[in-house]
């Protein structure tokens, strides 16, 4: 079985509104591609992604596995948090990596703060 990974740089979604971002990511997952998005969606966009995923479930598409690596997770220092927020304000949510795998390809994504394991079907 071969896996297809599709890397989406943040620049590709930067100018899109939330609806278009979610459509782009979900369309790739529906084509059985594992999406690697540079950066991350907002919490609200993640919730919308879940809603759109649920609305798309059918016999062939069973949903997604979703995971995000946050590079600054676990760093509770005030200045580190402040720096991270400033970077987000200036450059968007570029830090981190979002992984979206179609559920019929990816069985589970095990996530620790700085490590991700993809278990395939």
């Amino acid at each position: 079985m071969s896996l297809t990974l599709q890397f989406i740089p943040y620049a590709e979604i930067e100018q899109l509104d939330s609806k278009a971002r979610i459509k782009k990511l979900l369309d790739a997952a529906k084509k059985d591609k594992i999406v690697l998005l540079e950066g991350r969606l907002t919490a609200e966009e993640e919730a919308q992604l879940i809603q759109k995923t649920m609305a798309s479930i059918n016999k062939k598409f069973k949903g997604i596995e979703l995971s995000v690596i946050y590079p600054d997770a676990g760093n509770n220092e005030f200045f580190a948090k402040l720096k991270s927020r400033l970077v987000n304000i200036l450059l968007g949510n570029r830090s981190g990596l979002t992984i979206i795998g179609p559920a019929n390809v990816v069985k589970e994504i095990k996530q620790d703060p700085d490590k991700i394991q993809l278990l395939t079907q």
């Binding site: 907002t42 609200e44 993640e46 879940i50 995971s67 994504i109 095990k110 996530q111």
Partner: peptide, 17 residues
């Protein structure tokens, strides 16, 4: 169960927002 699931993080993030 393992609490480090994205669903849990998304729920918490949405409540914070």
């Amino acid at each position: 169960k393992d609490p480090y699931s994205q669903v849990n993080i998304t729920i918490v993030g949405n409540l914070q927002a």
